[in-house]
Design a protein around this nucleic acid. Structure first.
Length: 572
DNA sequence: GCCGTTTTCGGCCCGACTGTTTTCAGTCG
């Protein structure tokens, strides 16, 4: 089995960590970190690119050397240079850099001076007091490290987007009510709408900073203060999340928002353009010599380096800067473009509301249509429906539809894909549906070859129109199943099957990278909520967020179409 | 290690805060 993009990225990251500890050229280290990101974010696997004879050094930040190393990893599953380096620098040292206050310099000193090779060694050294003798390790630093080791602290924790959003809301409200505060906004990965976020970043504009940052650290939700100054504060909340507050004057708002929204690689790239133009960008503005020429708005900052405004969702340095420079930025889909929802459950299976209640909620959102997609019989925990149950539901839908104007419930089902790729309902009842949605719920642990064949077999059924939550991942709980998604996208594109972006905060499946790859492969896409109650229809915005991160325009999303055009577009 | 509207060599984003320092390195974002 050829190494996956994730495998390659992992090896490059580990190599970068050890190089950094060794004291290598920081730009060389950055090159490996950058390569890890570029490979991980690439929608196509490196092994497929190689098989297709494509040059890997066409990828940004990948030159001859890294291209060759990727080739080696794909063929052998290993990076010899990493193995060689690990004979001199213990591999567990890289993980020590995840501890707060420990960077490459201190980790190197721990290893060189005290022979500390891993977390257990470090814990022993702290207990024995051996660290006290070491330059740069005072009582506070030592205590902080000890506390982090005690708390587990393996890798930095990440949170679902909605959870971070919820934790941020009271803080934003509190800041907004403080005297002297002019504006309050979220920035960081929360503003970029990433599916998982590591911390909450908040930007405030105010004349005088210190009173605001200090008052902020006394908020009820704050468990501990990590740092506080006149322009910044970092705190940890009782729920464990870290919040970084930044404060600037209004004249710097745009520059600070751009800087603080990130992503880091995006910001570094934009600042690089500025340098090439003889400018300097920091969080206070854009400067020519000592003179500030922009900074009040993000538009100004982008314009100063010759770019149009780039939506936050695109700021990952995944080609958005080049696209912006060439005038090729897409007009991203918006929540208001959505005309209906194609995945929703009722009390008939595992939903909580009736057909009538779901229809009312969809009409209240201004939708033209709502597909009712209760589970098929195989999903017993969800009281899956059989043919007879479905026909009864269809009759009920007909009756309700007769009373609607400008709105229609669509007859459908979330048909289970059985282990062998057959569908859980006979073709006869599928052909009575307005739209056929299929999904896998069981046997998610099949080996990649079998899993892929299973899904492809399901797509072979000419009645199938939408593949729901295509990778079956659950955010922060379950990784995507082992399947060759590129083959699935290619087959779906050829057969005219749409891929779903499932908007449930727990799923967000397809994710941004896969959804972008699916579109590039020629797939149609839909954004659906998979609502299990009327209120769940409101999750559409989360799906739209991920669609935007996938560079999708309204024209890429079928459920932005009015009903008749939608049904035509879904036809195979 | 990558890259090229001044370049195939010599650059590579920039500032705040902490702790330990005796004027600043290291870490972090």
């Amino acid at each position: 089995m050829a190494a996956s993009n994730a495998d390659i990225a992992e090896l490059f990251s580990r190599y970068a960590d050890l190089l950094e500890i060794q004291g290598a050229n920081p730009f060389r280290v950055r090159a490996y970190r950058n390569a890890a990101r570029v490979v991980a974010d690439s929608g196509r696997s490196m092994s497929d690119r190689m098989a297709a004879g494509e040059a890997l050094d066409d990828l940004p930040g990948i030159g001859k050397d890294l291209a060759a190393k990727i080739g080696t990893i794909v063929r052998t599953g290993a990076l010899p240079q990493l193995a060689e380096l690990e004979t001199r620098v213990p591999r567990a040292l890289g993980e020590l850099m995840n501890l707060p206050g420990l960077g490459p310099k201190r980790v190197k000193s721990l290893y060189r001076e005290l022979g500390i090779r891993n977390r257990e060694d470090l814990q022993r050294a702290i207990r024995s007091g051996a660290l006290r003798s070491l330059h740069g390790f005072g009582p506070k630093t030592t205590a902080r490290i000890a506390a982090a080791i005690e708390r587990r602290a393996v890798a930095p924790q990440r949170y679902r987007l909605v959870d971070a959003e919820q934790a941020a809301a009271p803080l934003l409200a509190c800041l907004g009510a403080m005297p002297g505060v002019e504006t309050v906004e979220v920035a960081g990965s929360l503003r970029r709408r990433r599916d998982m976020v590591g911390d909450i970043d908040i930007l405030v504009t105010a004349r005088r900073g210190a009173p605001v940052t200090h008052a902020f650290t006394r908020h009820d939700a704050v468990a501990s203060v990590l740092a506080v100054g006149a322009t910044r504060a970092s705190v940890q909340l009782h729920n464990g999340m870290q919040v970084d507050l930044r404060l600037v004057p209004a004249a710097s708002h745009g520059a600070a928002l751009h800087y603080f929204t990130g992503s880091k690689p995006h910001v570094v790239a934009v600042r690089g353009i500025a340098v090439a133009k003889g400018l300097k960008i920091n969080e206070y503005g854009v400067y020519r010599g000592g003179r500030r020429i922009a900074g009040r708005t993000e538009d100004e900052v982008f314009a100063a380096v010759g770019l149009p405004f780039i939506p936050p969702e695109l700021r990952e340095n995944r080609g958005e800067i080049e696209a912006a420079a060439d005038g090729r930025l897409p007009t991203l889909v918006e929540l208001g473009d959505v005309r209906g929802d194609l995945h929703a459950h009722t009390v008939a299976s595992d939903g909580h509301d009736s057909l009538q209640a779901m229809a009312d909620a969809a009409r209240a959102l201004g939708y033209d249509y709502l597909a009712i997609t209760d589970h098929s019989r195989r999903v017993r925990v969800a009281h899956g429906l059989d043919t007879r149950d479905l026909r009864a539901q269809f009759a009920e839908i007909d009756r309700l539809n007769a009373g609607f104007r400008g709105f229609r419930l669509l007859k459908s089902a979330e048909v289970d894909i059985l282990g062998d790729g057959h569908l859980d309902l006979p073709d006869a009842v599928l052909s009575e549906m307005d739209v056929v949605v299929v999904a896998a719920h069981y046997q998610l642990g099949l080996p990649a070859g079998k899993q892929t064949a299973r899904i492809l077999r399901a797509l072979d059924n000419r009645r199938v129109q939408i593949l729901a939550h295509p990778t079956t991942r659950l955010v922060n709980q379950r990784p995507e199943f082992a399947a060759h998604m590129e083959s699935i996208f290619a087959a779906a594109a050829e057969r005219g099957v749409a891929m779903e972006i499932n908007a449930q905060p727990d799923r967000l499946d397809l994710d941004d990278v896969h959804a972008r790859a699916a579109r590039a492969a020629g797939c149609k896409l839909v954004v659906s909520t998979d609502a299990h109650a009327a209120a769940g229809l409101a999750n559409m915005r989360h799906g739209v967020d991920q669609a935007r991160r996938a560079w999708l325009a309204a024209s890429d999303v079928l459920n932005t179409l009015p009903l008749e055009r939608l049904l035509r577009a879904l036809r195979r």
